[in-house]
Design a binder for these strands. Structure first.
Length: 519
DNA sequence: CTGTTAATAT
DNA sequence: GATATTAACA
């Protein structure tokens, strides 16, 4: 290959670009030099930062770019970077073995055009010329700016200048725009994909929860989340997914609920006023229609919006981390989500100590549930219901395709609702309500023992177990793996029954009481 | 400009 | 195939 060393040729700019390479390590320097040569750059090397600085000072305009190691004895690479930037405004690329973001950031802050990690690859060096181009463009832009208008709106001007520039140089650099090479504006690194971690998602949920699903819009959510670097678009996207998931769940629930509601006449939910009657629910609930209806009715309160009422908000997305299957402890645990409590329209919460100021969305607070741990209402707590199976299913099938469905099936059906203290939520201001996917039964919410779902199931009331067994059969056929209302109902029943373990007044009753208010 | 929705990319 | 990003529309 012929090496054209005609430095003057502008048309083939990258060739012959004058690079000053600085590295105290001779070996590294040699390698670097070689690589740079291979890129057809004109290379000058030095192992001392001081020397580099001298060279640069003495030969202004004799270099196009500086590439320097960070760790050097005589002078910190960053210092060099700073001085160069200050004195000659040359593009400087930092080179380091440290991948620590701290260092990278430092480099960037000090004005580095790029931060390459050792061992540096020739591919990376092949692109460094772009920094030079970019830098020169900026200069041009600046100068043109200072010359022309000066209305003190740098941003606007810059934009204009940018466009102009873009047009002007359009031809020159539209060549490798595309390609796998990463050669966009080196400085304008492509935005990293946002990964919605549990934490992030929880924040999201907190925000949505707080706003109320209906009023939750990207902007507001974003504000509430207060996460750096997160954009409205990110949130919008996530919201989109969230909503679709919600919709899916709701649809399923409604479908089932509707079917179940055919005979709604019999549903004694009518006795909305007479809550007393609801004791039955958590109580024995003989299998059979009664059970079913009761469950369905209950479901309505939590899931439906259109058909049965309005749903204030629903939480339900799982970040696809883990199998979502709540391992006993809490693998991070808060993957949770829950179904928020519906609005209590007509009813009033009597015992409502809802200190939850901002709890417009969920004006009611379920108490009692607090089991022994919290005898009375905990301000700041806002329990939510959660349909484990459904959610699990959702997260498994939708978010974690890896998890075999059998897994889902094998899981005990359970609806649980948990309390979520604000301490566990990212929102420090508002005690948002969350559900925590803790496993089976409310008890588990508080006793995070090593029990497995299965174990818990077993430990639950025998009658229930039976019931579940029977019912499960049905649901498996009826609803298959979709996580049907049957499942939900079943779940609910299970929940109720298991709650019976804790005295009615405590869980069951209180639960319904509150629920009643929701209706 | 913001929120939604559809298309596209990874 | 699921997710996230972008484009496009109201």
């Amino acid at each position: 290959m012929t090496v054209k060393q005609d430095f003057g040729a502008v048309d083939q700019f990258p060739v012959g670009m004058r690079v000053l390479a600085v590295d105290d390590d001779q070996t590294c320097l040699r390698i670097l030099e070689t690589l740079l040569h291979r890129c057809q750059y004109h290379v000058t090397t030095t192992d001392r930062a001081e020397t580099a600085l001298e060279l640069l000072r003495e030969n202004r305009d004799k270099f196009d770019l500086v590439i320097s190691d960070v760790d050097m004895p005589d002078m910190d690479g960053f210092k060099l970077l700073e001085l160069v930037g200050l004195e000659m405004d040359l593009p400087v690329i930092m080179l380091s073995a440290h991948s620590d973001p701290k260092f990278v950031m430092k480099g960037v802050k000090h004005g580095a055009c790029d931060y390459l990690l050792k061992p540096v690859r020739i591919e990376e060096l092949k692109n460094i010329w772009q920094h030079v181009v970019r830098k020169s463009k900026l200069k041009k832009m600046k100068s043109s700016l200072s010359n022309g208008d000066s209305d003190g709106n740098p941003d606007q001007n810059r934009l204009k200048a940018n466009r102009k520039r873009k047009d002007q140089f359009q031809e020159e650099e539209d060549e490798e725009e595309r390609g796998g090479n990463e050669n966009d504006d080196p400085t304008a690194q492509k935005k990293p994909r946002v990964l919605w971690t549990r934490e992030l998602h929880n924040k999201f949920l907190a925000a949505v929860d707080h706003l109320g699903v209906e009023k939750a819009v990207p902007k507001k959510i974003l504000d509430l989340m207060n996460v750096d670097k997160l954009t409205r678009e990110n949130v919008a996207s996530h919201l989109q997914k969230y909503r679709s998931a919600l919709k899916k769940i709701n649809n399923e629930a409604n479908q089932q609920a509707n079917m179940a509601a055919i005979d709604s006449h019999f549903m004694q939910m009518s006795s909305l006023k007479g809550l007393g009657g609801h004791h039955n629910h958590h109580r024995a609930i003989p299998l059979g229609s009664g059970q079913f209806y009761g469950g369905a009715a209950t479901m309505r309160h939590y899931l439906s919006n259109r058909t049965f009422g309005r749903l204030n908000s629903v939480s339900g997305m799982f970040p696809h981390v883990s199998s979502s299957r709540p391992r006993n402890h809490n693998d991070g645990g808060y993957i949770l989500q829950g179904l928020p409590i519906p609005p209590l329209d007509g009813l009033h919460i009597e015992n409502n100590n809802n200190n939850n100021n901002n709890n417009k969305a969920f004006p009611m607070v379920l108490e009692g549930h607090a089991q022994s741990s919290s005898p009375s209402l905990n301000p700041g707590f806002s329990p939510h219901f959660e349909v484990n199976k459904r959610l699990d299913h959702w997260s498994n099938s939708v978010l974690s395709p890896n998890v075999p469905q059998s897994d889902v099936h094998s899981k005990p059906d359970a609806l649980e609702w948990n309390l979520f203290s604000d301490s566990a939520t990212p929102l420090d201001k508002e005690p948002s309500s969350f559900c925590r996917n803790t496993g089976l039964g409310s008890s588990n919410a508080y006793n995070l023992g090593p029990m497995t779902d299965a174990q818990q199931l077993r430990s639950s009331d025998p009658k229930e177990g039976l019931f579940m067994g029977q019912h499960k059969l049905e649901s498996d056929f009826l609803a298959s793996d979709a996580g049907s209302l049957d499942d939900l109902v079943n779940t609910l029943m299970t929940q109720e029954q298991s709650q019976a373990d804790f005295s009615e007044g405590d869980l069951g009753f209180g639960w319904f009481n509150s629920l009643r208010t929701c209706i």
